[in-house]
Structure formats: structure tokens, C-alpha cells
């Protein structure tokens, strides 16, 4: 569904990742890490650099044939447009562009959110605008749904509703989803894959369950730490207090505590982290 190699654009530096059809990708990163740049590049709004290989739905973004354009749904960080129209008027304007517009589904989403359909869109709250934007992006059942912090302005109830709708829709249609969010527990729930961008590079990328099982935090004591060759364990974000060391590493399905002890590290303690803690460790 998405193939990305050596992508450089604004904030991105040689970014690589793949996303198979039917997966849900959770996109994580600090503000300014390059999430929105990536999303806008996937949508064809940014130029792709020489030497990069980027395919979305089998084409370079922007080069899609007409019929594929309706296969992508997009919820931007901030919804703009249709200011002077009501929700019903805006839907009547947008609907003719999409062959697969699903009236019943759109009605269901609107009803679940309880959006006031007679009010001009410029008078809606930020959260309501975001909900309406979600309805517009999902109503034609796109094959690829790209969401740039879709829940940032939503209250906890509306957020939970959205997550439920997203999963229901995914179960029904197998939609592939790219979901940027700062709410790690949402990503933990719904994502099959995760991509964590730091300073334009992919720090973590791949199957979420594998990452959760294998990327572990190690605490240990060692005075000659620098002399050890830990490269096979791909250590990340090493920090040190006296002889106490802390780092993340890839256990690759093995008994990492035993392997590190055999390497000469002492008092090795291994712990599994949730996404939020991983995120914090990688930005410490």
C-alpha cells in the first residue's frame, strides 16, 4: 500500500518504511518531528526528492489515475473550508465527486456525533469541525485513510467514539490507515504497525506487537561499559549515572538478560515498556 525509501522532504531525512494493505500504522513523533511533512508528502502536496522511492497505492503521490484519487481519505490537523455552508449543504457539494459515497454510513456517523446540521460550519467548535472532517473522509469508504491528529480537539467521549468507528470500519472494509497521534494509548489499541519519527528519521518502525515484545529497557552496572561491543543488540538512547547504565535494545526473541550477562554486564534487569514509555525513553 505504501513503500517509502530514502525520502527527504523538509523535515525528513532518508526515511524508510513499508505499509502493507489492511494495516493500521500509528505515526508517532514530537511536534516538529516531521509527521505532517510525511503525511503531506504521501498525499502528493510536497515534491519528492531525487533518489527517493515513494509509492502510495502503487503510484508516486500525485500521479494517481482519476479512479484512485477517490480511494484516499484525508483528515487534516485543522479542517478549513465550507465556512458559509451548513453540514447538509457541504455534504451535498462534496458527495457528487465520490462514486462510492455511502449515504447510510455518513448518516450513521453524523448521528453518532450528534452534529448540528443546520448551523453554518464556521460556527462549529474545533472539535465539531474535526468530527465533520472525519465524516467527510470516511463516508466514501476510501481504501487508504490518512489521519493527521484526528482526535487532537476531541473530548474523551468523542475520541473513544471515533476509535470505535475506525475499528468497525476497518473490520468491515479492511481499510488501510495511517494515524498520527500523540495519544499513545490509542495507537497501542488500534495500530498493527508503528513508525516513530525523531528528527526526520525512523527510530522505530514495524509490527507493533513485535516491537512491544522485543524492544526492551535494560538497566545494568558496568565500569568498562564503553569497551563492550553491544552493536549486535542495536542499543538505543544509552544513558549513564556513575557505573549504572540504561539503554533500550532489541531482544530479537532471545533471553537478553542472559546474553548481556555473558557479555560481562552485571545486575542486568530487563523490562518491557509500553509505547508511551518507549517514546519518553527515546526522547530523554
Amino acid at each position: 500500500m505504501i513503500k517509502c525509501r530514502n525520502l527527504q522532504a523538509k523535515r525528513l531525512a532518508y526515511l524508510n518504511f513499508d505499509l502493507a494493505e489492511g494495516k493500521i500504522l500509528g505515526l508517532l513523533g514530537k511536534n516538529g518531528a516531521g509527521k505532517t511533512t510525511l503525511i503531506r508528502t504521501l498525499l502528493g502536496f510536497n515534491k519528492v526528492n531525487e533518489g527517493a522511492e515513494l509509492e502510495v497505492l502503487g503510484y508516486q503521490p500525485g500521479a494517481w489515475p482519476q479512479e484512485l484519487k477517490n480511494d484516499i481519505g484525508y483528515v487534516p490537523q485543522r479542517f478549513a473550508g465550507f465556512d458559509g455552508l451548513t453540514i447538509d449543504e457541504a455534504i451535498a457539494t462534496v458527495k457528487p465527486f465520490y462514486q462510492d459515497w455511502d449515504d447510510a454510513f455518513a448518516e450513521k456517523l453524523l448521528a453518532e456525533y450528534g452534529l448540528p446540521r443546520w448551523i453554518k460550519i464556521r460556527k462549529l467548535s474545533e472539535g465539531e469541525k474535526q468530527q465533520f472532517s472525519i465524516v467527510l473522509a470516511m463516508a466514501y469508504r476510501p481504501k487508504l485513510l490518512i489521519l493527521d491528529e484526528p482526535v487532537a480537539s476531541l473530548d474523551p467521549l468523542a475520541r473513544r467514539q471515533f476509535i470505535e468507528q475506525l475499528i468497525d470500519n476497518h473490520c468491515e472494509t479492511g481499510t488501510t490507515v495511517v494515524f498520527a497521534s500523540h495519544i499513545t494509548s490509542d495507537i497501542e489499541r488500534i495500530a498493527s504497525d508503528v513508525l516513530l519519527i525523531k528528527e526526520g528519521k525512523a527510530m522505530i518502525s514495524g509490527d507493533l506487537d513485535d516491537i512491544r515484545a522485543n524492544l526492551v529497557k535494560v538497566n545494568c552496572r558496568e565500569t568498562a561499559f564503553a569497551k563492550l561491543d553491544l552493536a549486535p543488540f542495536k542499543p538505543l538512547s544509552h544513558s549513564q549515572t556513575g557505573a549504572d547504565h540504561q539503554f533500550l535494545c532489541d531482544a530479537a526473541g532471545q533471553n537478553i538478560a542472559a546474553l548481556l550477562t555473558a557479555k560481562g554486564l552485571q545486575q542486568v534487569q530487563v523490562s518491557h515498556l509500553n509505547l508511551e514509555d518507549l517514546f519518553l525513553e527515546l526522547h530523554a
Binding site: E164, H170, C171, R189, S192
Partner: peptide, 17 residues
């Protein structure tokens, strides 16, 4: 799988796994 995924709001692949 779908019932569990829907009712717990989790990815269906997680349930399959």
C-alpha cells in the same frame, strides 16, 4: 475476531494473533 475487535476497540490482527 471482529466481535472482539469491535467491542474492545482494538486492532483485529491483535485478536487473530
Amino acid at each position: 475476531v471482529r466481535q472482539v475487535a469491535s467491542s474492545l476497540s482494538i486492532n483485529p490482527m491483535t485478536v487473530s494473533r
